[in-house]
């Protein structure tokens, strides 16, 4: 039921782990629903220099996290803000309909980490003014 790309990212997930002195950390989801994603960002001069993730969840949740980190690594904050769940799913050659929420979670985890970064640095990131990951996450 999963594409070969999903399975490949599940078997060999990119960027697994933590960043000890991360500039932004975002965690979304909950154990009740069966998936939690945590994303760590290292940001220098507006560029995402490094990104790591940890995920508790199904195969597509792990693959979506992996793909999302790959898509934003080395990109600017503005570019990372443009990451949509659709882009994550497409990059994985598609997700089963019942698993689309995993890609939503990945997008939210990235935004949540960026929000944390903006708060720590007292800056405003365009598009995050009204972002509330807890509110948006329902599936």
């Amino acid at each position: 039921m999963y594409t070969e790309k999903v399975m490949e990212h599940f078997r060999n997930p990119r960027n697994v782990g933590e960043i000890e002195d991360a500039d932004g950390v975002g965690e979304v989801g909950n154990a009740k629903c069966g998936d939690i994603m945590k994303i760590y960002l290292k940001i220098e001069n507006g560029i995402i220099k490094d990104v790591k993730f940890k995920t508790f969840g199904c195969g597509s949740a792990i693959a979506s996290s992996s793909m999302a980190t790959e898509l934003i690594k080395g990109k600017s904050i503005e570019e990372a803000m443009e990451l949509t769940n659709k882009a994550v799913a497409e990059a994985l050659d598609g997700l089963p309909a019942v698993k689309m929420h995993c890609s939503v979670l990945a997008e939210q985890a990235v935004k949540s980490a960026l929000l944390d970064y903006s708060k720590k640095n007292n800056i405003v990131i365009e598009g995050l003014e009204d972002f509330n990951p807890d509110e948006d996450h329902h599936h």
Binding site: Y2, F10, R11, C33, G34, D35, F56, G57, C58, A61
Partner: peptide
Amino acid sequence: YIEGESLLLSLDMVNIAASSGSACTSGSL
């Protein structure tokens, strides 16, 4: 601390067939 479907997928990768009570394997939430 781990989720059942990713456990089943990992077991399947080493040719072991098992099942789980995880929502992800049941089609419900």
